[in-house]
Computed example of a mutant assay.
Amino acid sequence: MVLRLPRLLKAVSRSWAGRRGSEEVAPNGPRIAVIGNCQAKGVAEAVRVLAPGARVRLVPMSTLGRRGQGLGAFAATLEQCDHVFSQPFPTGFFAEGGSEALRERLPRMRLFPSIVFTAFHPDAVYVGDLASVARVKLVPSPLGTYHSAITLFGYLRGLPGERILGLFREDVFARLGYLDAWDLAAADLIASSRAIGFDLSEDLLRWSRGGQFMHNINHPRLNVLGDIAARLLREAGLAPRPVAVEAYAPDALLDDAIWPVYPPVATLYGVAGSTVFKRRQRRGAPPETLGLDAFVAESLAIYRTQPRETLTCHRVEHWAGSPEIRSLFDAA
């Protein structure tokens, strides 16, 4: 009997779906919970690739403490897991404490760091009230919550858009420290990782040799999250598959905001440079990009709608106290 092509394709599809489904829900696979911010989704996806059969539960940090759940009750829901991987989270989600308090209840829990690395994007900052990490109040921007420090400070100094655009040049970047940002960014990342016993010094060296490894200041590329997932599995006594996760899974953070590496910064690090920004997009929707002029214009329009006292940022507060930087902007 000859099986026609459409039927053959359907049969193959059903057969593959059955094998794939059995692998993902293997009854003896380890039960793993991954807790964290937007990076945790990539870690969870990487665990699924690296540990076939693992039953992975993603717990977004934004959901912690919802509906009045206490830390004890949350810990009880994780007791059934064989492994718990969590990024550090502060007191504020739970009255009883943060991730350290949770680890006291779950001694097998392993912490992994939140990746923040600003050297590729030294101009990107948050604006607004950061006092409460659990419930931050941030000023919106054309890219969600990411702002240009140059644009913001130019606005606060009363500069029009065309003069602000003129500040995006190499000599200004040099005087603002944008071309000397690597060592401080590396030191900050390594220090924060060592503080939780997950030293990233060797990983950072490897990532940097591969070129640009960040989409923006706190969104690493999937290969970074894959390396973290593999290390978590190894340290938990599980043998991860020897594969590159980014070759098998989509990078979900590509759908979020992408900040460009300005050309003078890109030249330093040997990566591609541009001044094209990308907005956050719905999965499957085409990307929407902004040139520098459009990004600055939209940012200024937003700032005009905000009470001036809400436009707070540690970077620009420091610049406001520097006569040299004030004169740099005022002379633009």
Rank of each mutant, 00 (worst) to 15 (best):
T275G: 04
R282V: 14
V276G: 10
T267V: 11
W259K: 00
V271C: 08
S274Y: 04
D251C: 09
D251G: 01
P260Q: 04
R279K: 15
D255V: 00
G273F: 01
P263D: 06
P263R: 05
P260H: 05
W259P: 00
Q281V: 15
A252T: 09
Y262G: 00
L254N: 05
K278A: 14
Y269C: 06
P250A: 03
P264N: 10
Y262W: 11
I258K: 07
P250D: 06
L254K: 08
D251Q: 01
D255Q: 02
W259Q: 01
F277Y: 15
V265F: 07
Q281I: 15
W259G: 00
T275I: 06
D251K: 01
P264R: 09
L253K: 01
P264Q: 10
S274N: 11
L253S: 01
A266S: 08
S274K: 03
Y262I: 00
W259C: 05
A272D: 14
P264A: 11
D255W: 08
F277E: 00
K278H: 14
A252E: 07
G273T: 03
V271Q: 04
T275L: 12
A257C: 10
P263T: 03
P250E: 06
P250M: 04
V276T: 15
R279Y: 13
Y269G: 01
Q281N: 13
T275E: 15
F277W: 00
Y269T: 01
V265A: 05
R279M: 14
G273S: 10
L253M: 09
R282A: 15
A252P: 02
R280H: 11
P250T: 02
R282S: 13
V261W: 06
V265G: 00
V276S: 13
P263W: 06
V261F: 09
V265T: 07
L268C: 14
R280D: 09
L268H: 13
D255H: 04
A252H: 10
P250G: 03
R280K: 14
T267S: 15
T267Y: 06
T267M: 10
A257Y: 01
Q281L: 13
G270N: 12
T275P: 04
